[in-house]
Write a protein that binds this DNA or RNA. Structure first.
Lengths: 105, 105
DNA sequence: AGGTTATATAACGGTTTTGTTATACACGGA
DNA sequence: TCCGTGTATAACAAAACCGTTATATAACCT
């Protein structure tokens, strides 16, 4: 149970097609930040800021491996079930564009 | 099932504490616009624009009765179940401030 | 018709969002 | 230590958001 203020803050984070798609991809497992840079037609700094916003909202966890940073959904977030429910309503367009095997932007 | 673009547009409409609270109140039944003006510490034009935004997103239906306009949730909206689910996560703060019996701003 | 009430629209301003480019930081390898 | 790769931050600009006040429109009532 959340206040309207709390929920609206999280919804603001979710209310972006790029971020929704990123989250959807993370449902398939951990994603390297560089894979997002590959996937979307926006700059690397833009991707970085989308990730930061979701991290600050408590929706993501990160794991550093050498120079790569891998992001995943934070299942302990109080909003995790809401995120999962919403992502269940999202259809994926371009299926896969991960570069996890060999990260090289 | 919706595209990320479609869903993000609706989430943008939902991502506001005033609008979330208005929607929550409409779950209790039709609400006269003037009751919202009573409830919130924002101007009447601001209320009017919030309502317009939700109407344009297909989330609301309106019914005119004399000079009063009553708004209610649009159960036929493709996003209705999402709205209901989200509202289920919202706790109401100030219980009731309706003026439906005698509308007089 | 004229006045009152309810709602909507117009015009404006401050803040937030979201992209960009340029630059800094972190890490690994020759 | 220097260079390349991956990621983050800074500074900026355009657009959207959300409030305000002023004004218009719609409906009711005498």
């Amino acid at each position: 149970m959340h206040t309207a203020e709390e929920l609206s803050k999280v919804l603001k984070v979710l209310a972006d097609p790029t971020r929704l798609t990123m989250l959807k991809q993370m449902q398939d497992g951990e994603q390297c930040a560089c894979s997002f840079v590959d996937c979307f037609d926006i700059s690397q700094p833009a991707i970085s800021r989308h990730l930061k916003m979701m991290r600050q909202a408590g929706l993501l966890l990160e794991r550093r491996d050498k120079q790569w940073i891998h992001y995943r959904l934070n299942e302990a977030s109080p909003f995790y079930s809401i995120v999962v429910d919403l992502l269940g309503q999202v259809e994926m367009i371009d299926a896969s564009c991960d570069c996890d095997a060999e990260c090289a932007i």
